[in-house]
């Protein structure tokens, strides 16, 4: 253990210097389930997503749907259920907000 520790002293640290060095981040993989984006024009108002959303984050709204993203649990089920692919998963993951309503705009 002592050797291991002393060796590590002279190795490069494993740390990704997020926030302390500009543009350094752990890479986000392609399939990452981040914030959802909704294409209102593509939506046909079948309301299937409301039936399958486990968190009750989707509500009906004038024959289409609207999202309350503070409830979203990022499972991606809505985009899988949607027959027209009107809901897409983006790779955005840094959702840090001061009030709940800002989540949608971030």
């Amino acid at each position: 253990m002592i050797w291991e520790a002393l060796k590590s002293l002279f190795k490069k640290p494993l740390t990704v210097q997020y926030l302390t060095k500009p543009d350094e981040k752990v890479p986000v993989p392609e399939r990452y389930r981040g914030k959802i984006s909704y294409n209102r024009d593509a939506c046909i108002g079948c309301l299937l997503c409301i039936r399958t959303c486990p968190a009750g984050a989707i509500t009906a709204d004038e024959r289409k749907v609207s999202f309350s993203l503070d409830r979203c649990i990022f499972c991606g089920q809505c985009s899988e259920t949607c027959p027209r692919k009107a809901i897409e998963i983006t790779s955005k993951f840094e959702i840090v907000v001061y009030t709940k309503s800002e989540i949608a705009s971030q």
């Binding site: 752990v26 914030k35 840094e94």
Partner: peptide, 10 residues
């Protein structure tokens, strides 16, 4: 508030 289920450590 930090949204995510769970959010990444970053």
């Amino acid at each position: 508030y930090v949204a995510g289920c769970p959010p990444r450590p970053e």
